[in-house]
């Protein structure tokens, strides 16, 4: 479902990605860990077709991303560090705006369904600038799910969520996986990475020195291998 081969990305003099190969099948979640500056957000940006790689190729659902990527972008949902939400608009207006851009036919019904799902229905008519970090993250999640993407890319999606929000996200991911969707989730929490991921990967200085199925690693092995590759997790 998500495939990257030999991805490289250069930003000025800096080589951010140095030949990344990865694969996430339908119904799988890949959890990606790595220290700050390893290139995780850049990798997500390339996989979300926001940034063209300097080399290598990206395939989404078997189609290589080249030239006009509009049709492929429709199949991808991204939760990034920033919410992509307009502070002056209400929660409902933000989702309505994106629903129109994604040509979602049952827009109003889908918006209501998602606002209820993320627990923001009572705040539907409140401007987003009045939202807490956690509420904005929930709405960002709703925005990413709006067009029912087959591929979900999530950059530290648990950041700012309260325990109820975190459980909600767990449930959303489980349902996404059960529907045959693929997800790539970036996290700094190695225990969470081990619990959530069907595949686990570590990105260090633009390379992926560890990529394995969960069953191939013994419990706690991810943390040990991470420490060997990066240093203590708290140093990252």
């Amino acid at each position: 479902m998500i495939e990257a081969q030999g991805l490289t990305r250069r930003l000025g003099e800096r080589q951010v990605l140095r030949g990344v190969d990865l694969r996430v099948e339908r119904g799988e979640i890949l959890t990606l860990c790595g220290p700050n500056g390893a290139g995780k957000s850049t990798l997500l940006s390339v996989l979300a077709l926001l940034t063209r790689p300097s080399g290598g190729r990206v395939c989404i659902a078997g189609t290589a991303a080249r030239g006009d990527t509009r049709a492929l972008r429709e199949r991808v949902g991204l939760v990034a560090h920033r919410s992509f939400l307009y502070g002056a608009l209400t929660a409902r207006e933000n989702l309505d705006f994106y629903a129109r851009l994604y040509r979602i036919r049952e827009g109003e019904g889908r918006i209501r369904e998602l606002l209820q799902l993320v627990g923001l229905y009572p705040f539907a008519h409140e401007p987003v600038r009045t939202f807490s970090r956690g509420m904005e993250q929930r709405l960002s999640l709703a925005r990413a799910l709006l067009h029912r993407p087959e591929v979900l890319l999530l950059d530290e999606p648990y950041a700012g969520l309260d325990p109820a929000g975190a459980r909600l996200l767990d449930r959303i991911l489980a349902e996404h996986r059960a529907r045959g969707g693929a997800a790539l989730l970036v996290t700094h929490d190695l225990v969470q990475a081990e619990n959530l991921g069907d595949r686990l990967a570590v990105l260090v200085r633009g390379r992926l020195p560890l990529s394995a199925r969960r069953g191939e690693l013994a419990p706690g092995e991810l943390a040990r291998r991470y420490q060997e590759l990066v240093g203590r997790p708290t140093d990252a």
Binding site: A48, L49, L50, R70, A71, R73, E74, V76, L78, A80, R82, S83, F84, L85, Y86, G87, A88, Y98, L101, Y102, R103, E136, R143
Partner: peptide, 18 residues
């Protein structure tokens, strides 16, 4: 300014539009 606040240009770039 509205786009800059929460990186909304990326939200627009992500959408399947010209």
């Amino acid at each position: 300014a509205g786009e800059a606040r929460s990186d909304c240009m990326k939200g627009l770039a992500l959408a399947p539009l010209d």
